[in-house]
Amino acid sequence: MQNPAQKNVAQKTQAPLTDYLLRLGDSALVLGQRHAQLCGKAPALEEELALMNVGLDLFGQARNWLGYAAELMNDNVDADHLAFRRDAQDFRNLLITEQPNGDFADIMGRQFLFDAWHVHLLDGLTHSSDPRIAEVAAKSLKEATYHLRRSSEWVIRLGDGTEESHTRMQRALDNLWQFTGELLQVDEIDQAMIETGIAPDPEAIAARWKATVEEVLEEATLERPSYDAWMYTGGKVGHHTEHLGFLLAEMQYLPRAYPDATAW
């Protein structure tokens, strides 16, 4: 029979891990859906292909994270159920991922600030004490690295471009900045992950994120807002901006309207 003390430990570590996986999976899913909304609306064919492919990578990553979370929940749910049958308050994505598409500067600014964090986090997660997380992270890291390469090029091209593109890129950065505090925020769930060696040292991630952001913004001739600026938080515990509900309403409509469908 299982030692009761051990069982308690298992229960204690399982819930934060599930939450942590939802944070990873929901962030990828929601940002991927923002890309999907651009289908047929990108400014050029090449950019349309790129946006859709980046979105597709994010959906694939979301499926891997949410699939793992669903197994831990052991509640007869799967990744699709988590994606399509939960309401906004159950989502644990970062607030920056749900911000609206706006203009191309908003889209690439959001992607860049996220990518610059994502690559360093995934890189750290490849050393996770949880082998399944390490495996998914190693796969995702290659994709995220390529995403960062593209989003930084765009931030530089727009920032160091015409007066109009520079103005818009700076405005996008100023608007999005208030959601970046959450990327570096460490709460009790993160703390539990760090203590068990599942998640990497947050200070190293923060230092790397800042270094990447500073390097690219400098080359883009953009002014970096202050790290001490007031920041929105809450996405990681289910307190979202008003934008997420609308995104989910569109994304979840079909499976919710036809809950008995077995084939699409």
Binding site: D123, T126, L141, R149, E153, R208, A211, E215
Partner: peptide, 17 residues
């Protein structure tokens, strides 16, 4: 090229894996 850590910067070893 943009987006890469500076070779002499604090994140010289990126990526670690």
């Amino acid at each position: 090229p943009p987006g890469n850590p500076p070779s002499d910067g604090p994140i010289d070893d990126w990526p670690s894996s």
